[in-house]
Design a protein around this nucleic acid. Structure first.
Lengths: 226, 226
DNA sequence: TGAACACATCTTGCATACAAGCTGTTCCTC
DNA sequence: GAGGAACAGCTTGTATGCAAGATGTGTTCA
């Protein structure tokens, strides 16, 4: 520890950095965890992924540790890495947490003099384009819209927690809800209504519309899942 | 990946397991991060801690990676591990998130037929003992009380997020608020009032008292800090 | 004086080696 | 056939070695 070295540390120059092996292993593993290729309940081994990626166990191990910190894996000593099973209540838990955070942030953003309205309008337009010609997948555009609102509140902790929530939700929602064009149009309309409430500085309406919107999505997902 | 091995995996027998080197490194580093021995803004090196603990760099590296995932460290490639500086807004951010989660959970727990009332009463008694003869440090008893309420809500995601919040708060609050006996008595009384609202199944009162309590604590900490 | 280059020294990133724990199987004994 | 010891094959946990990036310093040259 050198107490005086706090000089210009975050001075990253833009020198296009080749991603490290550990970063690649992390990305690959995480994608598979989220899209279900690594099914919940299966046991992974470091060697397997290492061989597949043509790297050694070390960076793979680092990736697994990071994923365990995100609660997507459970490492059993000398057994392997278990893909965390999805608990029966997990969908409801994610919903509860999203409702809490997003309603709050919608109200706060509407109350503050935040200038996020433009970005929200742009995002809604993006979603409509996704519905029409399918440019950006709607699921991504949806995630972006909601994230904008949370991030606009300016609380980094909440934003981080929210990102983790969306990761978990993506893992659960293998049955991508956002495919049904009829439903998608409805969601976009709800987004527009939320954006409008924020633009007009109406915190109560913003929170209420957000809550109603999340309820709708959750209900739909639940009905689909039976 | 062996899809059929999902047998009796979490079958840990109670064979008193010696903690791994990585676990020890993690505990030591985390404690120092939280109690301020590793001051924000300083640069750590893996070698240093490894030598100190008499282990190799590998487990130390694992610990650092985990702590980066918790957002307590930032790893700079080939530079070292920077103890994350405490942002100016961090205390407010933690407060906002705690207020959100804990008010919600207090109301929910009061509404549900949860039988956490006994544990809460016991915790309050513990706090009073801490105030008298100083058995358990009050800070710990306080954390336990609040955690009980959040955990009683039964949402593992929220509980995890809450634990992370308390870690961060502990890192900020080097000026341990819980030392002033006069103030502590007041906090305990507020705890008792919250517990009472939960026991009497009054969600509104529970949430309101929790919010007021957190406000008081936050205000006190802020006044102290100037 | 000042700029640039070489170098010594720190750091991490990754590969590799080896020990040790866990599991299932085989084989032996009764 | 039943119980158990020995073993083979997997897994991870950790130490170690080496290459390469980052930084500060000193030397050289103008």
């Amino acid at each position: 520890m050198s107490p005086s070295l706090r000089a210009s540390l975050p001075g990253r120059v833009g020198s296009a950095r080749r991603p490290s092996s550990a970063a690649r292993a992390y990305e690959v593993a995480k994608e598979r965890l989220l899209d279900g290729s690594y099914a919940p309940g299966t046991l992974l081994s470091e060697n397997e992924l290492a061989r597949e990626l043509g790297i050694s166990r070390t960076p793979v191990r680092e990736a697994f540790l990071q994923l365990e910190a995100e609660d997507l894996l459970t490492l059993y000593p000398r057994r392997g890495a278990l893909v965390k099973p999805i608990s029966p209540s997990e969908a409801d838990d994610v919903f509860e947490a999203r409702l809490l955070i997003e309603s709050h942030c919608a109200a706060r953003v509407a109350a503050d003099s935040s200038d996020v309205a433009g970005a929200l309008r742009a995002s809604v337009a993006d979603q409509e384009r996704a519905l029409q010609d399918g440019g950006t997948p709607f699921v991504l555009a949806d995630r972006e819209f909601h994230r904008l609102i949370v991030a606009a509140n300016g609380n980094d902790l909440l934003t981080r927690q929210y990102d983790a929530l969306r990761d978990r939700q993506q893992r659960i929602a293998v049955t991508a809800v956002g495919r049904d064009p009829g439903r998608v149009a409805g969601f976009i309309a709800e987004h527009a209504a939320i954006a409008e409430a924020i633009e007009q500085r109406d915190p109560e309406a913003a929170a209420q519309r957000m809550a109603a919107h999340l309820h709708n999505a959750h209900e739909l997902a639940r009905r689909r899942h039976r």
